[in-house]
């Protein structure tokens, strides 16, 4: 397997890594860089627990070869609120509105919803459902997640 040196930005910090051609971004983040906020789920791109942002767009890091991150900006849950800093309104709303229970899908949900609110600051209910359908949650039935997004967007009824 060929090895490649990649340079990318992880949550605002310049990083370099040497990866095999088939190394997945999920494994680079979790196993090699110790950034375990991004969770492993189904590993086939369905559940959304491993969602990260590549140049602002949500992707499943379990399907994304790490070499593709070369020259790009990678943003994970650790980069949503700066370490030790204030929670974003969305994160706060996830706590207040019951947007999580077990929490395993929560990093992916918050990463996806952060991108949603950046793209559509006042999303309609349909826009929320369409955007978030790639992030499964077994605990909440999605009610609390939708309330959290609407609360953060200021569109809650």
């Amino acid at each position: 397997m060929s090895r490649h040196e990649i340079r990318f930005e992880l949550n605002g910090e310049a990083r370099t890594a040497e990866v095999e051609a088939d190394r997945l971004l999920l494994d680079l983040l979790r196993a090699d860089l110790g950034a375990t906020g991004t969770k492993e789920g189904c590993r086939i791109g369905i559940c959304g627990t491993c969602t990260v942002l590549i140049d602002g767009r949500p992707i499943s890091s379990c399907l994304y070869p790490a070499v593709y991150a070369d020259g790009r900006k990678v943003r994970t849950i650790e980069g949503i609120a700066p370490d030790g800093g204030k929670l974003t309104p969305l994160q706060q709303a996830f706590i207040e509105q019951g947007g999580f229970q077990c929490g395993i899908c929560t990093p992916g949900q918050i990463v996806s919803a952060t991108a949603l609110l950046e793209a559509h600051p006042k999303p309609t209910e349909d826009e929320i459902r369409r955007w978030m359908m790639g992030n499964l949650c077994r605990c909440t039935g999605y009610f609390g997640i939708r309330r959290a997004i609407e609360t953060a967007a200021g569109t809650a009824r």
């Binding site: 994970t76 650790e78 609120a81 929670l87 999580f100 929490g103 990093p107």
Partner: peptide, 8 residues
């Protein structure tokens, strides 16, 4: 809550 929404 804080740990779960920050990935920690």
């Amino acid at each position: 809550g804080r740990e779960k929404v920050t990935g920690h």
